[in-house]
Amino acid sequence: MVQIDARGMSCPQPVLMAKKALTDYPEGIEIMVDNTTAKNNVERYMKQSGYAVSVKELNDDFILYAKK
């Protein structure tokens, strides 16, 4: 599973990074963000794209896992 680091980026950049990564790796990705807005937007996008999403909070960051 490919890992994407989108910490420090404001929306819509994390969503665009997730979209590109899911195009390149349709089996699933792991993406790290550092704010709640990005977490919510990326999670919503991945769910709407048909992925099962789980979220893990690690210190001040969020790791989102998307799997088909």
Rank of each mutant, 00 (worst) to 15 (best):
S54I: 00
V2K: 14
A52M: 15
E30N: 03
G50D: 01
I63V: 15
M1I: 11
Y51Q: 05
G28P: 05
D5V: 09
K20H: 15
S10P: 00
E43T: 05
L22Y: 13
D34G: 05
S49W: 00
E57H: 14
N40V: 06
K67C: 06
Y65F: 03
M17K: 11
K39C: 08
P26T: 07
D34K: 10
Q13A: 08
G8L: 02
A38I: 00
N40M: 13
Q13N: 10
M17A: 12
M9H: 10
V15R: 06
L58G: 13
Y51G: 05
N35C: 03
K39Q: 07
I63T: 07
N41I: 04
D60L: 05
E57P: 01
F62Q: 03
G8S: 12
Y25D: 08
P12W: 03
A52Q: 15
T37M: 13
V42P: 00
V55D: 04
G8H: 02
K67H: 05
F62W: 08
C11T: 05
C11G: 11
N59F: 12
K68I: 14
M9T: 11
A6S: 13
A66R: 02
C11M: 10
L22G: 05
G8T: 10
D34C: 09
V15S: 06
G28S: 04
Y45R: 03
K67Y: 12
T23V: 03
K67D: 08
M32W: 15
G50A: 05
K20D: 15
V53Q: 04
M9L: 13
Y65K: 10
Y51E: 10
R44E: 05
N59C: 14
Q48H: 13
